[in-house]
């Protein structure tokens, strides 16, 4: 459906997109995931023909976006980061303009506009001027413009930015509905959103494609470890002594609580299950074990690992080796990762 081949975009000396290569198949929802400034919007702008690429090519249904722009652009509906709205028009006028611009036949225009207005729930504001609408409504009008005429490919650049939680849920619902008949590509820096909506994720960092797979596969293949979390009524050193003799442990992080208990995160080699031996060890030491549970690698971990390194790691087939250390006063590492989730978990 879309083939992106060896795409490079340079702004002066800055390499915004660095040899991107991927294919988009019909009928899926694709998510572009990456931190701010990773090159998501630039890639989308090139794919839709707004920008020219320094090198490489983009084929939409076999049509080169630069050589046969009109043919290629017919297949695409695009919502840029900032919705391209004319403030001096009413919603209806704007959508009529968009419909004519997209070459929808005169007889079908009204019907097509009414259909998308209902779809994104803007029918009740259709006679209001766009400049008087709130940000959420403007975003929806932009979305209506992209969906109008139901092109085969719908590209949405951060479609839920600026919306309230209820609207976000509605838009996600809408994207899922659209994916039944269309190919949807959306970009986001919100992990929860991408995991919920997309069935395929492309992680971009510093203009490079660092991973592309389904969310489940990413978590499975890129997860380097399993983890066990425990809570016990003991001191830090007691817990360390008890755990020391259990085989298969790679790393332990211990945190002392104020109520005299200790929480520990134990990182285990992949495929090992140490829960039983942990229980036995605590039982034989006579130390009460309050909690014992496993937790796998989350998409957050994968994302952080892929996008926070200076050099791009070779992901597939390479396992990160954890140092066998027991940090003394290090705070829980989960904290930094929670921040990334903010705004996404609504």
């Amino acid at each position: 459906m879309i083939e992106v081949k060896n795409l490079v975009k340079k702004y002066g000396n800055h390499l915004a997109v660095d040899h991107l290569d991927f294919n988009i198949e019909a009928g899926h929802v694709y998510g572009f995931l990456g931190p701010n400034g990773a090159g998501k919007s630039t890639t989308m702008n090139i794919m839709t023909g707004y920008l020219g690429a320094t090198e490489g090519e983009v084929l939409i249904d076999g049509h080169d976006i630069l050589k046969e722009p009109e043919e290629a652009k017919k297949h695409i509906g695009y919502l840029p980061e900032q919705p391209p709205l004319y403030m001096d028009m009413t919603v209806r006028e704007y959508l009529e303009f968009a419909a004519e611009l997209k070459g929808i036949k005169k007889g079908k225009r009204q019907e097509a506009i009414t259909e998308v207005e209902k779809l994104v729930k803007i029918k009740d504001v259709e006679h209001r001027l766009i400049k008087n609408l709130s940000k959420g409504y403007r975003q929806r009008v932009g979305l209506a413009q992209a969906v109008l005429g139901f092109p085969e490919i719908i590209i949405l650049d951060e479609p839920t930015v600026g919306l309230d939680p209820k609207q976000i849920i509605e838009i996600r619902e809408l994207i899922r509905n659209l994916s039944k008949k269309h190919t949807v590509i959306l970009s986001s820096h919100i992990l929860a959103e991408v995991r919920e909506v997309c069935d395929y994720i492309l992680i971009i960092s510093k203009g490079k494609l660092v991973a592309s797979d389904t969310p489940e596969n990413l978590e499975r293949t890129l997860g380097t470890h399993a983890a066990v979390e425990i809570e016990a009524k003991a001191s830090r050193s007691e817990v360390r002594d008890i755990l020391k003799n259990i085989p298969g442990i790679e790393k332990i992080e211990i945190q002392e609580e104020e109520d005299g208990t200790v929480k520990a995160g134990i990182r285990v080699k992949k495929g090992e299950d140490i829960r039983e031996s942990v229980f036995q060890a605590f039982a034989s030491a006579g130390t009460p074990l309050l909690t014992l549970k496993t937790s796998g690698t989350s998409l957050e971990d994968v994302f952080m690992e892929l996008t926070q390194k200076d050099t791009v790691p070779e992901i597939f087939g390479k396992q990160t080796v954890w140092e066998e250390i027991v940090p003394e006063d290090k705070p829980d590492t989960q904290e930094g990762e929670e921040e990334e989730k903010d705004g996404g978990d609504l």
Partner: peptide, 14 residues
């Protein structure tokens, strides 16, 4: 300035 040129330039119009 309003970035509406994105709409025009990505529409199937030369």
């Amino acid at each position: 300035k309003n970035k509406t040129d994105q709409m025009l330039l990505t529409a199937p119009v030369s």
